[in-house]
Design a protein around this nucleic acid. Structure first.
Lengths: 328, 328
DNA sequence: AAATGTTGCGGAACCGGTTCCGCAACACAA
DNA sequence: TTGTGTTGCGGAACCGGTTCCGCAACATTT
């Protein structure tokens, strides 16, 4: 049972293959021929060979998605959103993983270009000149999620604003002794914007702030929590991500501290499980899935040369729950 | 800056393109010509066009991966393992999502075949005759993960054995009044094997067992936990997955019960965060990532027509932690 | 009735590779 | 010297589509 080809259709319908091709692509074909071809295609379940099409057109119906890791909540949810949206519109998602190596991001930009994807959605962590060079070289629309750069279309989380809003809330509740547990600055969105939003809010209220730095890994945050349990006397620990909050909570529990009685804790990101923790975690919900869908929509618009804004913000939603105490 | 083609290389090197092709594919080429071609390829950064290659060879270096959802811990981890292993061997992973619809699994089997993937790894939930038909139709090696069927190569978790082992442990610790919170039977591995393993262990010890059924969603397990808090008097709640355990824990907390003082709870799956919960969750760790890598390895072996066993089991590891009390 | 414009369709070239076939050059044995 | 085998290479066909070009048939205008 070989593949049915356009030649077979042509032969069976008694026409030239160029006519079949025209029929398929909406060229001018008479009604009688149209009917014949339609019937034959119906009978044979003919489907055009995608390689032959791509070979000629130098294009595919694929959108490449570059993710730093496959097993992060944010990445997974975003991919879901992208995939749903693309599938509905006849495109396919091609996910490539960089295992958090910057070098591989650049590699993959070129690699995806080689595979002639129609566009690329890039869940970025950091933007270097070499990234920009690659983006320019490949001549394919690129949409950056989660980070921004003036030369790249970006869809970004309102990290600063969300952090500021949450920080304000905590200040309203009377917290004045705060610990901030963040990550390194190389990550602009999380390491800088998020932190700066919080610090601004704290500073405006004249609060006393101390800062710790850790990584994105849960394990690495546990000792931080333990240390805090031993040393610190703050009323509130603000964490840069939900995972960090999780680690800190564990560390506090190990150190015998109870949340929120002894100390309050907040996260950032809005992972599903934050709601079912006990105590449930106060955090900021970022709409990852919807952002994915939005990104898919935007990249498709870029394909049709529509002009879209270079910078788009998503929304956020404060989730005020049990883990943070109201002091006043 | 057009793509450099094999014709360009041939022209620049002053040879026929068939010679260049032979050079690339290890045919017989003289040393002098070899050098010339090599130099030209070097200079031009020539890379063969994959569509042209696939058009001719009717093959790609892609392995399709069918997943029921992109945002499950198990699927994510498995994909990581698959991706790493394939990348190292010059293959690419093409992930397709079925959004938990059986119909789409079948669609995707045909679809991946159309895209001429070299093989397919299928994270299955249920195997129907139509699946089997599809697998037979497409004439492409398929490896099934997480479920088994005698006609399909499968890599499966030792659900029964792991459940039995964990159940035995609980019996050893003196639990005799047990609640089992499971899922519907259509999922053979989780809905049946896992349950049966537990029940066997409980029954052998003559324990008193009551069974609840819920879904894979955290939210749906919360009311179950709440109900248990109200009604039940068991010493132990055994959950079919970590997510269900999470929901049950929340429900118990809502109902004012403390774990493990009032009642013990266990999960199944071994998600990362089970360790950092407080109390940390007793569960079975399944090696998702390693399983992904193993699956990748197996599918590549199937490509080379190696004979491999139809059924392969992975390992498991009991994680005995704080959430289950030792009664004796 | 002749000139002009449309429409439908077939033929051929092309996309960029791989592979089959045959020929020329050379080495070696008879 | 002739015959046989081996090696290196070019030409052409092929994979399965798309598109350009031109011709024939028919409709419309003058």
């Amino acid at each position: 049972m070989r593949q049915v080809t356009i030649n077979d259709i042509a032969k069976l319908a008694g026409v030239a293959k160029s006519t079949v091709s025209r029929y398929l692509n909406g060229g001018s074909v008479g009604q009688a021929t149209r009917d014949k071809i339609e019937r034959v295609i119906e009978e044979t379940n003919y489907e055009p060979n995608q390689f032959a099409q791509s070979l000629k057109s130098k294009q595919t119906k694929m959108i490449g998605v570059i993710v730093p890791r496959l097993d992060s909540y944010a990445a997974s949810r975003t991919m879901m959103g992208i995939d749903e949206h693309l599938t509905e519109r006849g495109y396919q998602m091609l996910v490539v993983n960089t295992a958090q190596q910057t070098e591989r991001e650049i590699e993959q930009l070129y690699n995806l270009a080689k595979q002639k994807v129609a566009g690329i959605i890039w869940l970025g962590t950091t933007v270097t000149p070499r990234h920009l060079q690659a983006i320019q070289d490949i001549q394919i629309p690129v949409l950056l999620i989660g980070q921004e750069h003036k030369n790249v279309h970006s869809l970004i989380y309102p990290d600063f604003d969300a952090a500021y809003a949450l920080g304000r809330q905590f200040m309203d509740w009377g917290h004045r002794d705060v610990l901030y547990v963040g990550v390194e600055e190389y990550d602009i969105a999380v390491g800088q914007a998020r932190r700066d939003g919080f610090l601004r809010a704290f500073q405006e209220a004249g609060a006393n702030v101390k800062t710790y730095t850790t990584t994105f890994k849960i394990e690495d945050a546990i000792p931080v929590g333990e240390q805090i349990a031993r040393e610190a006397s703050s009323t509130l620990i603000v964490c840069a991500t939900d995972n960090i909050a999780l680690g800190v909570l564990k560390g506090l529990a190990n150190g015998g501290k109870t949340v929120p009685t002894d100390v309050s804790v907040s996260g950032f990101g809005g992972y599903d499980f934050t709601e079912v923790l006990h105590p449930s975690l106060t955090t900021v919900h970022l709409p990852y899935r919807r952002t994915g869908a939005k990104a898919a929509d935007m990249i498709l618009q870029l394909l049709t040369a529509d002009v879209i804004p270079m910078k788009t913000f998503t929304t956020f939603e404060l989730k005020l729950r049990e883990s943070v105490d109201i002091l006043n």
